[in-house]
Design a protein around this nucleic acid. Structure first.
Lengths: 217, 217
DNA sequence: CGCGTTTGAGTACGGCGTAAGCTTACGCCG
DNA sequence: CGGCGTAAGCTTACGCCGTACTCAAACGCG
């Protein structure tokens, strides 16, 4: 069998596991970026040939999905429902965002590879508790949770995709020259502050908006 | 010179232009998907060798960025400020979303390639008018516009990334069997309706939330 | 008519994902 | 203890990718 072979009987013992492949991929991703996530380099990072990875996963895309699910699950593992759904939703967004900023190279992966249901459902279940306790029906609760999720991810995409120098669009609207400016690796503190204020404002607006349901626009 | 050669004097006349390359790329993207956007296939689609594209653009990534900017600009070309910023913001989101759903294969590109300032600024300028008229300062206005933008894009990523069969996560939460179900190309009407309701609710929440600024969360 | 200039074509290189077949290293059973 | 079944890892090879480099073609102009 290709994978999912129960450890039943004999055979050569495995020297790598799916978890190790995932961890190596995350490490390589954080350290060297998306373009380092090739079968050969992941294999080399594990002391194994590229083709050996196929004994554990069906292909490269499966590794990327494994990375996505791993990061999502570990970032949101110890989420709790708490007394209010607004609080839980906010903590969800903050924890999600913290992970995204800790792994900026992974953000495009999160954007293009959906978290699979068996990873997402436990996280959602915790959040749904709080909504159910507040009498919000499940469809509406899912909409609120997912709205915060896509906002957080979309926001991180903008932050991570922006050039290191400045806050992109808003810098360009303020326009004109100040042609100098520092161009370090990473983002300058001003830009970091801008993105944080933007994130806070957007998240607050979503939560407030969902709380004021029925008010006319 | 590699590009930006003013048409000054003689030389062999060009048989392709940056605009034609962009159009060919969009066409290929819509028709055959992201993986069809290779230099060779774009060239072939224009009756030209792959390397000839480099006379007009510095590389593949520039083509992808050109596609992003083209789609963004044309989708939002005839946006107007209107009487209220809430209306303008909503029309912005709806027009942006319409483009994203018309070009689903382009959504990952929009997510990973920032719209460059000279494309974004004219669109933003129109929207900023409405905010200025309502007395909202520019920083706050940009935050509101960009929040709606990243929500819309993030939402489209979720919709486009979802498996054709069902509404992904919310289908999985409703859980259990109903193991049959249609698996066509495209999405079934139920899923389309779910995403549309989700989008409407999220957008309304954002707009309402920004309108109720200062209310305690 | 050549000459400068610009565009397009041809060739080549290194790297990619991965299909196919082979070798290696185990547990087990006779 | 020897061979066998089995699963893991390795080697090779293929087609495709982006693109650097070099040359041929096609124009305006003197």
């Amino acid at each position: 069998m290709n994978q999912a072979s129960r450890p039943g009987r004999g055979g050569r013992p495995a020297q790598i596991s799916v978890e190790q492949i995932t961890a190596a991929a995350v490490d390589l991703l954080d350290r060297e970026g998306l373009e380092a996530l090739t079968m050969r380099r992941i294999g080399a990072h594990l002391g194994v040939a590229a083709m050996s990875l196929y004994r554990h996963l069906p292909g490269r895309d499966a590794i990327l999905s494994a990375v996505v699910n791993h990061l999502f699950a570990t970032a949101l593992a110890d989420l709790d429902a708490g007394p209010t759904w607004t609080g839980a939703l906010t903590r969800f967004a903050v924890a999600y965002r913290r992970m995204l900023l800790a792994h900026p190279n992974a953000v495009p992966l999160l954007a293009t590879h959906p978290v699979d249901p068996e990873t997402a459902v436990p996280v959602l279940a915790v959040l749904l508790e709080g909504f159910a306790a507040a009498g919000v029906d499940q469809d509406e609760a899912l909409i609120r949770i997912q709205s915060v999720g896509v906002f957080t991810l979309g926001h991180a995409l903008a932050q991570v995709g922006a050039r290191p120098g400045a806050a992109d669009v808003e810098g360009a609207v303020d326009a004109v020259a100040d042609a100098g400016g520092s161009r370090d690796a990473g983002q300058d503190p001003e830009a970091l502050d801008y993105y944080q204020r933007w994130f806070d404002a957007g998240l607050r607006a979503l939560v407030i908006g969902f709380d004021h349901r029925g008010a006319p626009v």
